[in-house]
Design a protein around this nucleic acid. Structure first.
Ligand SMILES: [Zn+2]
Ligand SMILES: [Zn+2]
Ligand SMILES: [Zn+2]
Ligand SMILES: [Zn+2]
Lengths: 184, 184
DNA sequence: GATGAAATGTTATAGTATTACATTTCTAGA
DNA sequence: TCTAGAAATGTAATACTATAACATTTCATC
């Protein structure tokens, strides 16, 4: 049982359940990753799996050097290329996304969904991020690009703001990552 | 007369006119900036103006250290805080935008338009960027965020692809800035 | 077990951004 | 005009993010 009410499967949850059992998120994500890599013949090695887990450690984006530090604590000291190569693999496989405005990475909520653009709601208070897969946003972007004669290869939507939990006073998560203030 | 056909004022231009007289863009932008700062009582100092001009030097985003190099050529050698502070001012005034996926900056095409989200088409071939101000994209994002109970403070839309000129074979501009390959 | 390809280790360096403190310049009020 | 005080700029050091180049190990296949 989840400590807070879970939304039904048929409608999108409002944001992250506060106090949800995150180990389920990680386990589920790992299961999906294993399955996808198996199908594709991609090698989810021990190192890559560990980096994946560290990035999935929370719903807040994780920086490459955070991963590096954790890795160095567990094993012998690691160097940047170790983690950047793992991240590169995970990005190529669509298992994680890069949050451009934070120089950090989050697990993908639906890696089986092919080639989706990244759409993210980023809470400036608790640092948590949820991924959207909203066809209306994609459509609006595609339409606008088409009018300009622009051939789209990919896009990123990063929305800053305050999540419902923080509006009410209560996300306990670690707080936000750096991030620049911005006018719009 | 422009060497390539100009679109009418009433419909949005397709992309940048190839071979347009860019000095006009810069002059116009500088005029708008002066006027806005005057109205607001913001101090567009000599240094800030020069940084603004250097960022407006092309339609491709310019990195802070590019600005720094130019500045150092003109005056005595400058240090990073000099340019970052000027950039901070220009961002606050909405005179330029940050392109998150490139760690670089472009002039805003319509700084009088208050608090608009950044929406950009970024050509991966020539490096040029055009800014969109598409209410449909904004609306779709706002609607999606509202459904999630998320209070938006700002957003960035960065669309990668190939501009019409490059599709036809011919933007002569300097080529793209670094930028990471991406799945979506 | 030999072989080549893929993955990882290691060292060095490039590129981006901020902190902290000193100095200069500008603005307002006396 | 003179003079605080604020704003802007100068300067030095450092932190954070990312990649290049080359060595070594691991893995799949023959
Ligand atoms: Zn995703
Ligand atoms: Zn929050
Ligand atoms: Zn703008
Ligand atoms: Zn182009």
């Amino acid at each position: 049982m989840s400590p807070s009410m879970s939304p039904s499967k048929s409608e999108p949850r409002a944001f992250l359940d506060i106090g949800h059992d995150h180990s389920h998120c990680v386990a589920d994500a790992l299961g999906r990753a294993e399955a996808l890599c198996a199908v594709r013949g991609a090698r989810l090695t021990k190192l890559r799996r560990r980096v994946f887990e560290l990035i999935w450690a929370s719903h807040a984006p994780v920086g490459a050097y955070d991963v590096l530090r954790r890795l160095s604590e567990e094993h012998a000291p690691a160097a940047p290329p170790t983690v950047y190569r793992a991240i590169e693999f995970l990005l190529e496989q669509g298992l994680i996304h890069r949050i451009e405005s934070l120089n950090a990475f989050v697990g993908c909520c639906d890696p089986a969904e092919e080639q989706h653009s990244g759409q993210f709601l980023i809470c400036e208070s608790c640092g948590n991020v949820v991924e959207l897969l909203d066809p209306k946003i994609s459509k609006a972007i595609e339409e606008s690009a088409r009018r300009a004669g622009f051939a789209v290869t990919g896009s990123t939507v990063e929305v800053r703001g305050i999540c419902p939990g923080c509006q009410n006073g209560g996300c306990k998560s670690g707080g936000p990552r750096n991030g620049r203030a911005s006018r719009g």
